[in-house]
Simulated scan of single mutants.
Amino acid sequence: MSHTRWKLAREKKLVEECAESPEVAAERAEIRLAMAFAKAVYDRRVELGLTQTQLAERAGLTQAKISRVEGADTVPTLPLLRRLTLALNASLNIALDDDHEEVTFTAHPAA
């Protein structure tokens, strides 16, 4: 079993053992989504061989802002999503479900 599946199974077991309030469940979902987005940005940046500073320059942002995005410390706005998507030369895909969030960048084909 992969670490991710183990982690999700452990999280589901914890949820079953103690009842969460709807507010806590919503906050947990928001955190998972922020972490999924942060990981997707980091993975794509590394795939392109860029530093945070280089990505910031491409997106017209600061390195500190990229650090906050990759640290899941900020809630991205639509304009920020667009800037990052263009800077990462990719399409942004977000899949949301009751207990699953998936964020990926799909590289644009080489021209």
Rank of each mutant, 00 (worst) to 15 (best):
K39V: 00
L55C: 10
A26N: 13
V46Q: 13
I31C: 05
G49V: 09
D43R: 07
R45N: 05
W6F: 13
E27Y: 14
A25E: 07
V15T: 10
A9Y: 03
A38I: 01
A9L: 09
A56R: 03
L8S: 10
E16Y: 02
T53Y: 10
K7V: 06
E27P: 07
D43K: 03
V41Y: 05
E16M: 08
R45F: 02
A40I: 00
A19Q: 14
R10V: 04
R32M: 05
K12E: 13
A38V: 02
C18K: 14
A9P: 00
L50K: 03
E57T: 14
A56E: 03
C18F: 10
E57K: 09
T51N: 09
V15H: 08
E23Y: 11
S21K: 14
R45G: 02
P22F: 08
Q54W: 01
A56L: 11
A56P: 08
E11R: 13
I31M: 12
E57H: 12
E27F: 14
R45C: 02
R45E: 02
A19D: 13
E17N: 02
V15N: 05
E17D: 07
L50H: 03
E11D: 15
L33V: 03
E17G: 04
A34G: 10
Q52A: 12
E57M: 14
V24C: 09
T51Q: 11
Q52S: 11
K7H: 11
E17H: 08
Y42K: 07
R32V: 06
K39S: 06
E16R: 05
Q54F: 05
L48F: 00
A38N: 05
K7S: 11
A26R: 10
K39Q: 03
E17F: 08
A26L: 13
R45I: 02
T51V: 04
P22I: 10
C18L: 11
E47N: 05
T51I: 08
K12S: 12
T53C: 06
Q52T: 07
E27L: 14
A19S: 14
L14S: 10
Y42V: 00
F37E: 02
E47C: 06
E16G: 02
A38H: 06
A34H: 05
F37V: 00
A26H: 09
G49Y: 02
A36W: 05
A56M: 14
F37N: 01
C18A: 13
V15C: 08
A9V: 04
A36R: 04
T51G: 07
E16N: 07
E16P: 01
V24G: 09
A34I: 00
A40Y: 00
G49T: 04
L33T: 06
R45S: 08
A40C: 08
E47I: 00
L55Y: 01
E17I: 04
K7M: 14
E27I: 11
E16D: 06
I31E: 15
E57A: 15
E23C: 07
L48H: 02
R44N: 01
E20H: 12
W6I: 03
A25D: 09
L50E: 02
A40T: 04
L33F: 11
L48N: 01
S21V: 08
L14G: 10
R58D: 12
D43P: 04
I31A: 15
R28I: 06
R10N: 13
A25S: 15
E27H: 11
A19G: 12
K13R: 15
M35V: 06
